[in-house]
């Protein structure tokens, strides 16, 4: 046993486990894929201008862009199941990443503020995101994307409520 000297038994520690994470809306997968594809479409559009008016051979850019688009499509499909969040009574967690698995947890008594936002593409898919800020620096802040508008607002309110009821 690890922390045998403590008053609490580590076996009794509330554990954060993979099954606790709720998967995001399926639309979020399509949202991400559309975002990526829009980017590649834009890049292809720019490159095709060079081909039409300049002297750039089509396959020089079409090949790499198609390959990258395919790779990012596969990546999105595979990594989607890895994304998820988990709100518990005392903390909120988000996990993501296919090649690098990441889990971040913010204890609610350390939440500075919490924000709800929705972008133009998000509005099309009826998706929104909730951002949770701490004093731990911008790299460590949590943003939970891929939520329905109502559930995002609900989550935001819940986190804000729990956060201000602590400490």
């Amino acid at each position: 046993m690890l922390f045998e000297n403590l008053k609490i038994d580590p076996q009794e520690l509330p554990l954060l486990e993979a099954r606790d994470f709720s998967v995001l809306e399926e639309d979020y997968l399509y949202y991400r894929i559309s975002g990526r594809m829009l980017f590649f479409l834009f890049a292809a559009g720019m490159a095709s201008l060079f081909s039409l008016f300049g002297k750039l051979y089509f396959w020089y850019w079409l090949g790499p862009i198609l390959a990258l688009a395919l790779i990012s499509l596969i990546y999105e499909l595979l990594s989607f199941k890895r994304r998820g969040f988990c709100l518990r009574e005392q903390d909120v967690s988000y996990r993501s990443g296919l090649l690098i698995h990441r889990i971040t947890t913010i204890p609610l008594n350390r939440v500075q503020h919490c924000e709800y936002s929705q972008g133009p593409l998000g509005r099309l898919f009826d998706l929104a995101q909730v951002k949770v800020y701490t004093a731990g620096g911008s790299t460590s802040d949590l943003s939970i994307k891929g939520l329905r508008r109502e559930s995002a607002i609900k989550l935001r309110d819940q986190i804000t409520k729990l956060a201000s009821s602590h400490d």
């Binding site: 090649l99 698995h101 947890t105 204890p107 731990g136 949590l142």
Partner: peptide
């Protein structure tokens, strides 16, 4: 004093 925590695991680490 900890504000929040992360665990990262890359492919090599896994």
């Amino acid at each position: 004093k900890i504000q929040n925590l992360s665990v990262n695991q890359s492919f090599l680490q896994a």
